[in-house]
Design a protein around this nucleic acid. Sequence first.
DNA 1: AGCACGCCGACT
DNA 2: GTCGGCGTGCTC
Length: 886
Amino acid sequence: MFVLAEPGTDYFADAPVAAWVEVLVDCPGAQGVFTYRLPPSLVVQPGDILSVPFGMQQVGAIAIRCLATPPTDLEPTQLKDVDTLLQTGFFSATYWQLLTRVADYYCTSLMQVVRVALPPGLLTRSQRRVRLVDGKANGKRQTANGETDASPPSSPLSPAAQQLLTLLNASKTGDYTWQYLQRQCQGAHQGLQELVRNGWVENYLEPPATVRPKQRLAVTLVASSPTDLTLTTRQQEILAVLRRQGGELWLADLLQQCRTSSTTLKGLAQKGQVVIQPREVLRREHAPTIAADVSKPLTPDQTAALEQLQALSGFAQVLLHGVTGSGKTEVYLQAIAPMLENGQSALVLVPEIGLTPQLTDRFRARFGDRVCVYHSALSDGERYDTWRQMLNGDAQVVIGTRSAVFAPLPRLGLIVLDEEHDSSFKQDQPAPCYHARTVASWRAELEDCPLLLGSATPSLESWVFCRSQKAEGRREWGIGSGESGVGSREPESSRPSLEEKLREPNSNHSPTLRSSPVALHPLPLFLSLPTRVHDRPLPSIDVVDMRRELHEGNHSIFSRSLRAALLTMKERQQQGILFIHRRGHSTFVSCRSCGYVVTCPNCDVSLAYHHVHSEAIPLLRCHYCNHTRLLPNDCPTCHSTYFKHFGSGTQRVAQALAQEFPDLRVLRFDSDTTRTKGSHRALLNQFAAGEADLLVGTQMLAKGIDLPQVTLVGVVSADGLLHMADYRASERAFQTLTQVAGRCGRGDDPGRVILQTYAPDHPVIQAVQQYAYEQFVATELGQRSQLNYPPYGRLVLLRFGSTSPIAVQQAAERVALALADLEAHGVERLGPAPAVILRVARRYHWQILLKLPLHTAVTLPDSTTLRALCASNVSLTIDVDPLNLF
DNA sequence: AGCACGCCGACT
DNA sequence: GTCGGCGTGCTC
């Protein structure tokens, strides 16, 4: 331990000991660097993660620079001490570069990027909580009127105060976070002040609960110790047990096995026979034990793809276009295996972990416990431990969702992004609004390793990038000169070092809204797996014209051919999948008599009809804010009892199935039935075990599940997918339908797809039916290029939100004005306009969409400048490369 | 974010 | 004349 005699004293000849440290604090609105005193016992390096006092509370901070002399512009008394060192040696130079690049490109602060990179809980700040005062209200008060209490209020309580008191009394502990109470109760602020004044509740700060490594006591046999003759028989027995178990056991296990007490063991420890010491245990998701698996023989296409992949050295962006069932996973596995042998790690990114239990299982079967899973459904402890395990430096494979792109893996040899077209790789809620594919390409570039993008229906971005490059070779991709010259082959020395970057705080904390820091990507590569494994054919796709069904008198939601196919399927004891575009029973409920539509009181959308199957309670639910209410018996405006449900959601289809096919055993698979942890796997296992004939579900059925027994796929109506007011609607529809179709015929029996639609001539339907991916892409790209939409132009969406409808509009208009002169530089500005759904969860939204042409160096105003134009009650989110425009 | 400080309207 | 609302600004 260091003891600092005097500030500035040299401990080592060449390294003056720092007594002050400049940090970045984890607090929105606290831009810039803050200086803290370092207590003598702490040794801190740039990049270390600290906890510091900030204002009233404790917050997380990142050490930026150590100082040997105190800052001159501040009184020494103003400086506070660093509280604790949370993590050291985490940010390597390349990792730090990655984070700054993300912050720059996505127009957020570095701190916000750091927050997604670190496991949750590491940067927790102290939390403001409210609790009942002991012996005062103490949970016994039923009402807030004061009769039962010894100290009646001086004045009657306001409704807000009463509500707070009821809330607190209802909980066991009488203790809630202030944030929760504010959300639950309007006017919570006043209410709280009243209660505090009356002495019934108190306000307190809960210090940050750091996630810590879990320690357990281990007992280890001291091998060399001479056998002590004073040992009792009991003690000898214990030693024998320990020896038999390999000389080491957890204390708890040993106690249980020997039915002894810890005093006995302490005695052994005192005699020097054993050592009892705390040891870190990893909290890991306990995977079902899986039989080991070996490499499968490859098809010629797979072999060719693997060979090309393995011929790469260093960074390359590779698109693996393999039709559904073509064996992409096997290529990933065999590409990764030699890397692990070489001591290199691999990162595998998937859209949603829960949806691909089979993929995880296959990796585990092949690589055993070198496989870690990292995603948001893990508990904080599990995530923290997995994260620390990655830092320890052992080569490993991490399978994770979007945020795992920041996994701190040592010696990355390969990044795989499976189902690369999937939109869940894009984060659109809290900043940074990053796309894991984009970040992965930077990461691969910085780590100098290949990035493998796999899909049966590649995104247009990846297609254009990897295909056009094939012909043209290297070329610059993106607009602008590219800020930091992130050309990947640039020699290390000419890049700004971490130190240099950090020296200018502004270059980090107030990112400029640049048009494109995207760089020169070398060696894009296109690999193709055009056929399925074992020469299995792709399923045939029958398009059924539902208009015709109606004309010919079929009013059912199932066409005659789908009905026949379902019956044949059941007869042959095969299984099928029925795809529905929406969840819920039907989309909305309206009055046939007056046209009234039940809408959400918080959002400008209609409520969806749900049916709680256990009890026959008809419910209406908002899919945006989850507001739920009962279905009214009659129309709230005209009191007519004629309510009609429109659309056909999962529940309604399941009902119709039960009516028309009473023998068919149906399993629902949508976000309603798969909400709980592990339910995906459970449902899929149930289905795989043959406990149902038909799996009925939504989008999630399209995401790479592999069920070999499925021979029939039915699409109830493709129309909901086709007609969405969005420039990506066609691309998304094509991808979803092709992916859904790909779920059948993966086993020995050929598959068949029945696609019902009211628009059989729609180009998307035609392309899906003929598996004409390239043709579809060509027409789609033509349209995109005409309108300068991605991938021929870039979009930036500025989203404004506020509880005040006037303030949002003003903010949007002021920002639009500030952006006016961009038009001279070829930037197209759409808006400001109220968002399609103006109000979501009581907040009003406006937006501005910027369309930036490629190949122009446009510099947009600094994002902090734009934020400064907004009133304080208006939030501004900058979504670079947005996928959802509304 | 959370909390102080400070300026305006409804009360003693 | 004071209390208490919330709008503005700072936190090393």
